[in-house]
Design a protein around this nucleic acid. Structure first.
Lengths: 220, 220
DNA sequence: ATTATCTATAGATCTATAGATAATGC
DNA sequence: ATTATCTATAGATCTATAGATAATGC
């Protein structure tokens, strides 16, 4: 693997693990066993590294959220989208943690992220559309659907922070991928009132799969 | 006003304005026209300042979210709670921006914030309860109500970040209190499907008051 | 006497670069 | 020749403290 890619990979790993704010360019270089100078040969700055990682994140999510317009959507489609989005979110979880600071310090990132958000919102809207076509949810007025999509986005993007701040007892103990996927439960809760009688049971069953369990009791 | 309180007030102002990460103890001291040494005479550390500010925030929210158990709740009560929570959120908006970092660095804060979250969730739950008693929303199973309360919390605590990252074109341009209150529109959207026929119109009218307007066109 | 404030600075980082050296590709 | 890497360091901060001085309260 090229050094450039190894830097991106290690930076992502360290950022996710410890938070971007706690990871310096020296840390990344040391982690890779290379000199800081070399790191700066490959990237102009720390925020350049972050920008490149964002571009990968963006590409991943865009790939998953390519919602077909030519056919109705099924509960299986919905499951796939939810799993994909939460998976991508988990893999780049450092990003939303320090989002505001990162955007404040990089105009490119700020612009790209804003567009990214709007693409995601549109995709969520299209999923609702497609599910209505597929008879899974009742059709809703344009305006309500837009507000619902935004709520879905707010729940998704905040779920990680909630887990870390409200549940985790230990500072270093990151939530697991499994816990993160329980965010799907919360998203499906938003959609419950809009389900058609025909598909209600199958979505309820899906939701049940992601139901949060009471926190583990520590076993010594 | 005592110097100690002036420090807390100025720190809060600077944190809100520029973000905690961008505000050093030197900045706070300079802003107050005092020496950094003096600042450290009144507070042990920067995170001690943050912790004291959090305690004020906590006190404010706890004061507003003292939900009466002895009477049903009205639409006016709901309005008051929503306005109060968003107002408190606005006044201490720096806090959620760097939440994870702040909690990682202060065990007291971590513990207190976790309890605070759970108190807030309980209060939201009680609001739903009281509104059901008042005939505003249809009663729901315990389990659904808990998941709904959590979604309300997630929307509230993420609304500010959404505004800043998805809407603001300029980096320094903070969302206004007015925009923040449009988060109420989003919260009320969550409750729409559960309204009773009797109160549906009055809640819809309330929601309309907070409807987001298209972003201002810059007038030269 | 005690409380509040200031001056000056140690010590720890962090980002980024200059300039030298090593490795690679024609 | 070009690309990759390293060494060494400048320059900019930041947090926090030691120790001196000023202000205040009995």
């Amino acid at each position: 693997m090229k050094t450039r890619d190894r830097i991106l990979l290690s930076a992502l790993e360290l950022f996710n693990e410890r938070g971007e704010r706690n990871v310096t360019t020296n840390h990344i270089a040391a982690f890779l066993g290379m000199s800081p100078g070399n790191l700066y040969y490959h990237f102009r700055s720390k925020s350049d590294i972050i920008y490149r990682i964002f571009q990968e994140y963006e590409k991943l999510v865009d790939f998953y959220l390519d919602i077909p317009r030519d056919r109705p959507l099924t509960v299986a489609d919905l499951t796939f989208y939810l799993e994909s989005v939460f998976d991508g979110f988990w893999r780049y979880r450092f990003f939303h943690r320090d989002l505001e600071f990162l955007l404040d310090n990089d105009a490119r990132l700020r612009r790209d992220y804003r567009d990214f958000t709007h693409r995601c919102l549109n995709a969520i809207n299209r999923v609702f559309d497609g599910l209505a076509d597929g008879g899974v949810i009742k059709p809703q007025p344009e305006e309500l659907r837009a507000a619902m999509s935004l709520n879905v986005w707010l729940v998704i993007t905040n779920w990680m922070a909630f887990l870390k701040t409200a549940e985790a007892a230990e500072p270093a103990r990151n939530p697991t991928l499994n816990q993160l996927r329980q965010g799907i439960y919360q998203v499906l809760t938003l959609e419950l009132p809009y389900l058609t009688a025909e598909f209600r049971d199958s979505v309820l069953a899906l939701r049940e799969k992601y139901r949060p369990e009471p926190p583990d009791v520590e076993v010594a």
